[in-house]
Design a binder for these strands. Sequence first.
DNA 1: GACCTGTGTGTGACCACGTGTGCGC
DNA 2: TGCGCACACGTGGTCACACACAGGT
Length: 411
Amino acid sequence: MSSCLSGGCRPYGFDLEIVKSPSSTSTITTHSSSPSSTTLSESSNSPLAISTRKPRTPRKRPNQTYNEAAALLSTAYPKIFPAKHLEKNTKFNTKTVLDTFLTCTDSPDLLLPFRVFDNSGFLLHQPIQEKPGFRIEPRVVNCYENPCQTPVENDFLEDFDAESILDEEIEEGGLDSIMGNLSVENDPVDESDAGGCSIQIGSSCYGFPMGLGFGGKFDFRFGLKRGVRALRNVEEGREWWRFPTVNVTDISPKLNKAAAAAPTEKKKKKVEKQIEVFKGIESPKENSFTKENQNSIAKQKENAIPKSKLLKLNYDQVASAWSDRGSPFSEEFPGHEQSGIDLHARLAEIDLFSENGGVREASVLRYKEKRRTRLFSKKIRYQVRKVNADRRPRMKGRFVRRPNSPMSDRS
DNA sequence: GACCTGTGTGTGACCACGTGTGCGC
DNA sequence: TGCGCACACGTGGTCACACACAGGT
């Protein structure tokens, strides 16, 4: 008998299962690594059953992948990822990795070949080091904290989807097309002050604290280029990274306070519940951001969230500052009261060549529409295979041979 | 605070077989 | 260009396991 029994001569090994007696639950198998108990239940009633089933490969545990990666990293970069962490913490520890990364200031091994600015060291010596437990979490109050963010940008940040962006880039021919016309001239920031981690879109910016955790000495901009396609227009003779940036410390909320206010793990859930309450108050349907609404919302927020738990904000002041910009939480744009306006109709209304960023608005609309309609369900590449799989007989969720299959005669 | 126990959640593995793909002739 | 061959891939439902979390002691 050949070991090549079925399935295109796959390297099957013998898996002898000798069942002593039908009543006995003990099973002698040549593959002790198989933790599955289903082989026992699927065994025939014969006292001596020979299974040609391939032994189960050791299952990867949820953290096993991370552990393997960590082991690989410790091998490749022992200076950066010392093996002691692997020995002590078999479980993947984000904090440990982050700490290790943050404390490795003298290891340029992993730094990207981006331009290094002299004053970009602040990325490393920011309060993060004082508070290693700093966690990157979705921020609810970005709009209020960072006045340079438009509502759309905050929305964009809130659900950053790299895949969609890449799709957009493919479709539109450039990453900048997502956010419209990105003019360099409108934002004359001194390049020497470009302190690194900042993402700038249009006339505003992203204070992206995420970049703060990556060792600091590289310019972290996601390849975005203002007004010019990133990495594509090198032939223009312009150095693509030479676009003005804003020091992240100027545009980010005070990380000291944020880090100090960061909840402990045990209190995380409580804070998340409070955030839910916060979101519930800020319903997306509040398009008319009138002064009355602002005041009531501010009062509700004060009542809903203990002041000691979250950042203290002067909601009245912030709301009044936003009074002429429409609702920062609205999916719609000011002037559109209806929520179900057809995208194309709205796009048609936009003057693409207006000086107020018509292209940008259209791009944002396209992006939001795409984000709204994107599918998180499983993507079927081959429909015919799905049909076949649906037709295929199963036993406890596993495919089994068809009764009339030629292979079934051998067993 | 540490420990234990029960419950809920997320995810990899498993199976057969038709289809896709690459290669040689 | 067409054909045949061998192999890899993808498909869905279920199970088993690790882990997170809550509650009690």
